[in-house]
Design a protein around this nucleic acid. Structure first.
Lengths: 190, 190
DNA sequence: CTCTTGTGGAACATCCGCGTTCCACTAGAG
DNA sequence: CTCTAGTGGAACGCGGATGTTCCACAAGAG
């Protein structure tokens, strides 16, 4: 039954990739043995799916980019005010979980597949920020690249806060949205 | 002249430590040879000052903690409103430069010497935030530990922005202060 | 000058992660 | 049952980083 074979192989491959994202997020220089242990497979099996470390890194980058693109699509960046879209994006990205650590601690990993994070060169993101500048929901003094850095750093801080302090994802997400909202909203009094 | 000898040894030791902070900040797993090259000394000399890698790491942690404490003291956390003190702290910490990268990419490194960063367990920091909560300059809905995470993540984002985008330190610091200020200031309209 | 100090280079043994190979075990298809 | 796919363990060679030793060189003190 080839379908079952593919199912088993696909399942193992996915387990390795998920474990790799978790482990590499906390330690980009982790040994392959650690990843194999985390995935609950032997190191031999890992090498059977990804002969060299670089093969695994490429697959991790592809998986991460796919999850990232899915989250971006779910945020519907072109709907509502610029600020509302930005906060929707924060909520979607926050669900990426441990992938946030990997994106932040190993920027070069994903940057070759999807150079979104560091460079603010994502057209959709820039367009969203520009819309916010025009509709008055985002401070025009804050350029899109800086807001990209701002958002990613707070996402990482929030995720680290959850994992290290054992706080509720929901509560931390609320704090995060609150501070991002406050940071980008034009100051009415001043 | 023992003074001169001590001066020479202290100078070399300091050069190694500064180079280690720079190099390890960009790559926590850097080889000792890279650090030695960056410090413009031979690998033999590095081992003469720090026999094992762990010795160097400890010294780096001590040096980082010292710089951190000095910056904290310069911010005079007990003067002015809570928000003003927080922004002063951001300005002082931003001057730490490449040490920011090390603190953020290798949290375990300094956490044993000065567990400030992740835990919001610094009493002076908590007192400053509490004062801000009372004097109305910091949103009472934002707890001190989260503001600590927020501040550090923004500092790292700002430093990375300077090093990668080649932006002016002054401009980036202004953006940083602007967004931190907006994030913590209570919303008057809402 | 000589002697001490600080240094750098070369060589070496060692350790650890990587990549490979081979073999034994288990579960499901037939 | 047999056969096959998938897996895990043991062992090996390789390469890079580490830690050590020895020796040569330069600069300043005496």
């Amino acid at each position: 039954m080839q379908v079952h074979e593919r199912g088993a192989r696909a399942r193992t491959r996915q387990a390795i990739l998920s474990a790799a994202i978790d482990v590499l997020g906390q330690n980009p220089g982790a040994a392959l043995g650690e990843i194999a242990t985390a995935a609950d497979v032997g190191r031999t099996t890992l090498h059977r799916y990804f002969p060299e470390r670089s093969d695994l890194m490429r697959a991790v980058a592809a998986e991460g980019s796919a999850r990232l693109d899915h989250a971006t699509a779910s945020a519907r960046l072109d709907e509502g005010t610029g600020c509302a879209a930005l906060l929707r994006l924060c909520r979607e990205y926050f669900d990426l979980g441990s992938l946030l650590s990997l994106i932040f601690t190993d920027p070069d990993c994903l940057s070759e597949s999807t150079p979104i994070v560091d460079d603010g060169c994502d057209d959709r993101f820039s367009a969203m920020i520009d819309r916010g500048h025009r509709d008055g929901t985002i401070d025009p003094g804050l350029p899109a690249p800086w807001l990209s850095s701002l958002m990613w750093s707070q996402l990482y801080a929030g995720w680290a806060y959850v994992t290290q302090h054992g706080a509720s994802r929901h509560e931390v997400l609320n704090l995060l949205v609150r501070t991002v909202d406050g940071a980008v909203t034009p100051r009415t009094s001043v």
